[in-house]
Design a protein around this nucleic acid. Structure first.
Lengths: 337, 337
DNA sequence: TTGAAAGCGCTAACAA
DNA sequence: TTGTTAGCGCTTTCAA
């Protein structure tokens, strides 16, 4: 017979014949409670099917045991995989994940964060290192620990878990140059409010400069990170009178879309146009031709972000993070000239 | 100068020169407050940078304005897209999304739900109609409204938002039979604890029966819903002495994996083996050959689940749901015999 | 190790 | 329309 309304800790204490305080301690700090008492509380909990009230607990303890994450979007596979790892790891550590997105509209992030703060969380996970002042102020004001993910930054002011987009882009551009390409286009993603995109452009440009090459501004194509963005990029570079021999894409999604557009326009990859990606999603090894890309530690970012953020909440000693490794994956979509 | 600690409603009331009650009402039910009072409260809120405490609000009002969703996994694109829509719609309706997964281990779902109930949410979104008794009991005991998504079921006992997997599978199998295939294999997904998979098998079998065909048990391959599962399915059906002429896949992910395996084994699609998918993810139109598949209302499921669940929370009148439409998408991967 | 009691910050019923 | 006040269910001193 379940009681008509949700049992409270007081019900548990009464049934167990102990005080409210002891019942609370039995659940939260069992080490401070005699085995006998513990056992009686345990039995009462079981008998009543008691479940703590998170709201009351949160109000009294000022801890919610939940972490919020704000992503640009949830439906990019790179984020979906990482979010999955984040959620699993948080779960193992005893935390829940509250999730939100701003659809690549950085200006909305403040509102989203405000709603989340109102809801109550112990810490937040953000993507990238560029956020509005409002975001950082809110975090400071409410003493919310946060970790910046995906892009690693040296600055000691914030914890970050990720890799250097600059370095990754530099490596790819160097590889492309070493294959003899001189006319190089970049499908970079949309730079506004996105530090990763800007780092990618800068890294690409730097590597080309070392090779004595130039990244022409008309060949930097800003497109969303999806298949269609890749298609558009191909259309764009084909519309000029001069044509590049390679298109470096900021995500594999763009690259796959670009390959598809080439196929429908009868352009051979890599013979007529080489295409490279970034991320090394599973699909990269499945398309024809297989994608030359950069492997990034998608799952590991989720796992480490979870651990880091929990460590911050719990006031643990924080090891200094190092930038994570990326790795060129050379496959057929990049040809030699 | 931000105050040293988070301002409370009492601080707001004091600054505005009104009572705590009025301040609360100004925020929650502004219609019951005089414009002048409202304005003073509004200014005090702004001046203090006040943000409500969700925990206190939840404790006093017994509402968290949070909805939980439990998915098998977050990194299947079909779920990622739907979750994104769910989150967006909930956000528009003023609710936050707490998200969890059980990695296709239905037996873990009870534990996950327990933790969520403890955390406190106003309602839950579940995938499929098959759940452990524990799940339904928990929902009942804590009077948690829930909606079952993806698979539509007639039963009036629960609200569901989705389509008929049986019908969808039936249509696909009918199409396949009408193309002259008689030796038909099915990569179904893993049936244990998954009503959608079982409905798919039943629907396929029923359609074939009408066509005078049989679905051989050795050609029902249970594999996870990912690329590798599709690859394995191809290996499996090639290992028998008798070979099917078509492989119907339960997800496009399987189908794409299957196509890839065929390519690496030198099997032509659809000449040597036809392959069909389910879901009509964006990728389905990008692979070679393009996938014959079933379009399912991925985004719409997320949107309607959000609306339904909020309606239930807010005690609104619930319209009867109808099964959602699916649609065959015929492309090149299915050949005629 | 335990019990008593004072909040945590808000909502909602009631009275004015 | 507003103010007053009693909780919501827990944690956490403090004393015993």
């Amino acid at each position: 017979m379940p009681p008509t309304s949700r049992p409270t800790l007081e019900d548990v204490a009464r049934l167990a014949g102990v005080s409210l305080g002891s019942a609370s301690r039995a659940l939260s700090i069992p080490a401070q409670v005699k085995p006998g008492t513990l056992e009686r509380v345990r039995r009462a909990v079981e008998q009543l099917g008691y479940i703590r009230s998170g709201a009351a607990q949160a109000l009294a303890s000022r801890r919610t045991r939940t972490v919020a994450a704000i992503y640009p979007t949830l439906d990019n596979p790179i984020f979906a995989v990482s979010i999955h790892a984040l959620q699993r790891t948080l779960w193992e550590l005893g935390y829940q994940l509250l999730i939100a997105s701003h659809d690549y509209k950085p200006e909305r992030e403040g509102d989203v964060l405000r709603a989340i703060v109102e809801r109550g969380v112990d810490a937040i996970v953000l993507v990238g290192s560029e956020h509005s002042d409002e975001v950082f102020e809110l975090a400071r004001k409410y003493e919310l620990p946060y970790v910046l993910t995906w892009s690693f930054n040296e600055s000691k002011r914030a914890q970050s878990i990720g890799f250097s987009y600059y370095e990754a882009a530099y490596e790819m551009a160097s590889l492309v140059a070493s294959y003899g390409h001189t006319r190089i286009a970049l499908c970079s993603g949309i730079a506004n409010g996105n530090d990763r995109v800007r780092a990618r452009i800068a890294g690409t440009r730097a590597a080309l400069k070392v090779a004595g090459l130039e990244l022409r501004s008309e060949w930097i194509v800003e497109q969303p990170f999806n298949f269609e963005g890749g298609r558009q990029a191909v259309r764009h570079i084909l519309s000029g009178k001069d044509r590049p021999t390679v298109l470096i894409c900021g995500t594999d999604l763009n690259a796959v879309g670009a390959i598809d557009e080439c196929r429908s326009q009868g352009i051979r990859v890599p013979e007529d146009l080489s295409i490279t990606g970034t991320d090394d999603i599973e699909l990269a090894g499945l398309v024809e031709p297989k994608l030359t890309t950069i492997h990034v530690p998608t799952v590991e970012i989720g796992v480490r972000a979870a651990r880091k953020v929990v460590a911050m909440i719990e006031g643990a000693e924080l090891a200094d993070e190092l930038p994570m490794e990326t790795r060129l994956v050379v496959r057929a979509s990049l040809g030699r000239l």
